[in-house]
Write a protein that binds this DNA or RNA. Structure first.
Length: 680
DNA sequence: GAGCACTGC
């Protein structure tokens, strides 16, 4: 083994020795570090970093309509600020609402705050997320997901039941965050007594304060407060020269680090499953060269089975260092305990909507500074840590502050429907925090017009437009459901929709042999009609076999995702029947009828088989290919297919493909197909 | 014969 050369330089001048002194035994707890764990809850609250800002926050909120709160992780802002407001009496004028981007954090925070107040959740402190609600007449502090608040807007456009809204984690800039912020700005101007607190990371604070200032408003409509967090220091290392292959560099860095650094687990960020497995193979070669294994390498990516994912949470035996090779899943979604060293390859895979082809591109791009900081932070959770960035300091300085917000790079028909339902007539003039490209908005308007959700004037149609705006999935799937109610197969269509909402139900095992067995097992469900009917088959088999984990193991299916699809399906059946009066019937195996419904939703996304042997988009003539993940990839080519999504990678790939008959198009979408000529 | 990060109603 070559000797370790200091390839990394530190931006700060501290001697490297300083990092090694004071190293404690590795922490093995899976909980977030809490220095005050043996104090009572009240004393704990008093000791939180945010406590000394309490009066200032309350004062600012008295003086201004919008307050921007900048606080690091662990500052206690999500749990404390709602209580400060309550204790100061803000609840007497209406609810204190807190929005969260994810369901889990919504429920967890509500429970935590209720506990701190010595109450049960559902009394003063409540929450509402999809599928679960703990709200009573006494509820004054209400934690909700962003999606729930947007739904509440439909019934109460001025949010009159609230006196204060706190938008937590606003810096994430999800599609729903941006929609909510745009709408809240409108509401604030109409309801001067409503207050807004935006809780954000440092990087976006000035952006938000500019967005929430308008002519004629109090000049200091927004106020920034910065609250430090409770993270340990993380030392940063950079490459002197850019590297050619970050997968190899990651593995080499892991190995050097393992030889030279004191105990502590390693987390390496790569962009995709393929890279993770490649790096895993490479590091295993290094490990095999040792007599006794002192390094244990584990992969972590989204489509692994739950059981395989669990293994990254185990504490390695004494004398063994754990290294986790992960995708972005470890950046925010999953916290792996014991991590002291982070390796950041500097890249990330992002989806980007292309309005010309209505496809998503999946591209590997440099991470943003915000992501790089977030990744580095994963090293400082248990004790002071180190991050090795596989790029130069100059490259780091040149990184974009953040990834463009989701709303600027996504398909927008859902967002447009939502805004139309709230009475926003001219979508192009809506005050988005970051306006999306006009082309994207126009593509959404065209899609909605084709689906008969909007009329020539761009008004929501009755009943289709209003129904599509209310249903909680994409416009095309909602249209599919609407038609299935009329054709008598809503039960099957709801199953398919539920299966499409969850993450992949087909697991991708780690080893090559298991991957092969998985593929063979999946064939069990495959049918010539295509992917959506295949999904229906998986669901039916899962239910018939008693919905067991064993069944999923045997057929390489992901239990947690299938289980969630079942939950969703139950909810959708109830929703469709009770709220929207859609008759729920089963077509009892009439597959053609189901395929017709699918066509009724996806008729704008059709490809025909050109005589040259490749598929072409019916609307534009663009060449398309069947995605290798599709059931139809290995089957003889059908003349006409509809697809659920287009993905641009090495080619323009169709996914979620269904075989259809040409005459269904004119039968189900005559308004769209009368002028379109099909060239063979 | 290609490859898919993550959420939400």
């Amino acid at each position: 083994m070559a000797t370790f050369k200091p390839k990394f330089i530190k931006p700060d001048t501290d001697d490297a020795i300083a990092d090694i002194t004071g190293v404690e035994e590795p922490q093995t707890s899976t909980f977030v570090y809490n220095a005050n764990h043996n104090l009572g809850l009240t004393e704990q609250r008093e000791r939180l970093p945010i406590r000394k800002y309490r009066d200032q926050i309350l004062y600012c909120l008295e003086q201004h309509q919008v307050v921007i709160l900048v606080g690091e992780t662990g500052s206690g802002k999500s749990t404390q600020v709602p209580q400060y407001l309550y204790e100061w009496g803000w609840h007497s004028k209406g609810c204190i609402g807190i929005t969260e981007p994810r369901r889990v954090s919504t429920v967890t925070l509500a429970n935590r705050v209720a506990q701190e107040r010595g109450e049960l959740v559902g009394d003063t402190v409540g929450y509402a997320v999809r599928f679960q609600e703990r709200i009573s007449n006494e509820t004054k502090i209400k934690f909700v997901t962003e999606g729930i608040l947007l739904r509440e807007l439909l019934a109460d456009p001025l949010l009159t039941q609230y006196s204060v809204i706190i938008v937590d984690e606003a810096h994430e800039r999800n599609m729903l965050t941006d929609l909510l912020l745009g709408l809240l700005k409108k509401i604030l101007r109409k309801r001067s007594q409503l207050k807004l607190i935006i809780s954000s990371a440092t990087i976006d604070a000035s952006f938000f304060s500019e967005f929430f200032s308008w002519p004629g408003a109090d000049k200091e409509v927004s106020v920034k407060l910065s609250i430090e967090g409770r993270m340990h220091a993380v030392h940063h290392f950079y490459l002197n020269e850019p590297c050619a292959d970050y997968v190899k560099e990651t593995v080499a860095t892991i190995w050097k680090l393992h030889q030279k650094e004191p105990p502590g687990d390693i987390l390496a960020f790569l962009t995709g499953q393929e890279e993770v497995l490649e790096a895993l193979d490479l590091i295993k070669e290094y490990i095999a060269s040792e007599e006794t294994a002192t390094l244990k390498a584990l992969p972590m990516y989204g489509s692994m089975s739950s059981q395989d994912q669990l293994s990254v949470f185990f504490t390695p035996p004494k004398g063994v260092r754990k290294v986790v090779l992960a995708t972005n899943i470890a950046e925010t979604s999953i916290t792996i305990p014991g991590i002291v060293y982070v390796i950041d390859c500097g890249y990330v895979k992002v989806k980007w909507f292309n309005p010309t082809t209505c496809s998503d591109s999946l591209m590997v791009v440099p991470v943003s500074k915000a992501s790089a900081i977030q990744r580095a932070g994963r090293a400082g959770r248990v004790r002071p840590g180190k991050v090795y960035r596989l790029y130069t300091k100059q490259d780091y300085d040149a990184l974009a502050p953040r990834q463009p917000p989701e709303l600027r790079r996504s398909e927008l028909s859902g967002a447009v429907l939502q805004l139309k339902a709230l009475g926003i007539g001219n979508i192009l003039r809506f005050d988005f925090p970051s306006p999306p490209p006009a082309k994207n908005l126009l593509a959404a308007l065209e899609t909605l017009y084709a689906l008969d959700a909007l009329d020539e004037e761009g008004q929501l149609t009755k009943p289709v437009g209003f129904l599509l705006a209310e249903l909680p999935f994409t416009a095309m799937l909602s249209k599919m459901l609407h038609v299935s109610g009329k054709l008598g197969c809503a039960e099957e269509i709801i199953t398919i929709i539920a299966m499409l909402q969850v993450q992949s139900i087909f697991s991708r095992p780690v080893s090559a042999a298991a991957q092969q067995s998985g593929r063979i097992a999946h064939r069990h469900f495959e049918v010539a009609e295509g992917d959506l009917i295949t999904l229906l088959n998986v669901y039916t088999a899962f239910v018939e076999e008693g919905m067991t984990k064993e069944f999923c193991g045997q057929y390489y299916l992901i239990y947690r995702n299938l289980k969630r699809a079942c939950e969703l399906r139950e909810q959708l059946i109830n929703l469709a029947r009770k709220k929207y009066g859609i008759p729920i019937f089963s077509c009892k195996g009439d597959v053609e009828l189901i395929c017709k419904c699918i066509t009724a939703g996806f008729f704008t996304q059709v490809a025909y088989l050109h005589h040259s042997g490749v598929y072409r988009q019916i609307s534009s003539g663009t060449e398309l290919a069947i995605h290798p993940n599709s059931t139809l990839y290995t089957l003889p080519q059908a003349q006409y297919v509809v697809y659920g999504e287009l993905l641009q990678t090495t080619k323009l790939f169709m996914n979620h493909v269904t075989v259809i008959k040409k005459e269904w198009l004119t039968e189900l979408a005559p308004h769209y197909y009368q002028q379109t000529t099909v060239r063979d």
